[in-house]
Simulated scan of single mutants.
Amino acid sequence: MEMEKLTATACCNNGNVNYGRVADKSSSSKFPLTFWEMAVASAVVLGFLLGLLCVYLTMPESDYSFLKLPRSLEDLQILRDHLENYTSDYTVQVLVGYCTVYIFMQTFMIPGTVFMSLLAGSLFGVLRGVALVVFAATAGASSCYFLSKLIGRPLAFSLWPDKLSFFQAQVSKRRERLLNYMLFLRLTPTLPNTFINVASPIVDVPYHIFFLATVIGLIPAAYVTVKAGIALGELRSVGDLYDFRSIATMFLIGVVTVTPTLMNKNKP
């Protein structure tokens, strides 16, 4: 009887301790970033804003009320119509401003980069537009990767605990052919690109593999979007960008890239 009482008391005490830890964890998870992590993120934001300010100061005096992040095709067409007047005379400023905005949106997972890709096609044509989008998207994904490596772990576990566990398990199983798997993810909508950018350093995806998969994997989608930007006036919705043929082609390419990984896994 004495032993049973001691055991019951110990279990209750352990339960109280565990409950306290869970409570502390849940209370701290309301805002997962510490003061220093917020300071790092704020410094990055400030750096981007200073870059945009420098671009703005080198542009001619004019009414720039049209400058805003496009949220619809109508906003994008207005932005395109105004920027066409500046692109030929102030090409460097437009390019720097475009890349800064695109990288900023990718770094902080701000939706709307599809409109920026359409804008690249409308302003610069297919070849230069694809090169610009792939460069800016890769730079933004890399910026997000390194920022997440510094401060992203608590945020990722707070936002996507189940998805992060799934990604970790898949990466662990495919270490020998990780590039093929990362290419598959970039080419198909299996996981969102924003999640891949944030989660990759947390699950120990090496940067060189992340970089190669991003550069190569973004080319097909960039080509489709940039090409559609040339005929911007004919688009009725963003859904018109990806027809069944385009999606099936990219998915087929993704399956081809991941096939060596699956074959290697099934070997005895």
Rank of each mutant, 00 (worst) to 15 (best):
L57E: 13
R175I: 09
G97H: 02
C99M: 15
K5A: 08
Y64I: 03
G229R: 03
G121T: 01
T113H: 01
T261G: 13
L123Y: 01
N266F: 12
F108S: 05
V134T: 02
T225I: 01
T190M: 10
P161I: 06
F31K: 06
M105E: 01
P111M: 04
L50I: 08
F135E: 00
D81M: 11
K30E: 01
N18V: 14
G129L: 03
I253D: 07
T7N: 09
L159N: 08
A156I: 14
F211P: 08
L187I: 07
L164Q: 05
F146S: 10
V126A: 00
K68F: 08
G217C: 04
A23G: 11
P60T: 09
K149A: 12
K173P: 12
K227V: 05
K149L: 12
Y223F: 15
V40E: 07
V55M: 03
C54D: 09
D204T: 08
M263C: 13
N197P: 15
V238A: 02
V198Q: 07
S143L: 03
N264T: 07
I230H: 07
M263I: 14
K5I: 05
K227T: 11
V256G: 12
P220Q: 02
C12S: 13
F48K: 00
L235M: 07
L76K: 01
F244R: 13
K163E: 10
V224S: 05
V224G: 02
P32T: 01
P206K: 01
M1G: 13
L191S: 05
I110M: 04
M59K: 05
T214I: 10
E176P: 02
V226C: 06
D243V: 06
V44Q: 08
E84M: 12
F35G: 12
A156V: 14
V22K: 08
I151G: 07
I110S: 05
F157L: 15
L95F: 09
D204H: 14
F244E: 13
R177F: 08
L83D: 06
T190G: 01
D162Q: 15
Y86I: 10
D81Y: 08
L132F: 03
V94P: 00
C12R: 13
I216S: 00
N264D: 15
V55C: 12
I78M: 11
R128A: 15
G140S: 12
I202A: 11
A248D: 11
T190C: 04
N197K: 00
G217N: 07
Y207P: 01
T58K: 13
R128I: 14
F31D: 02
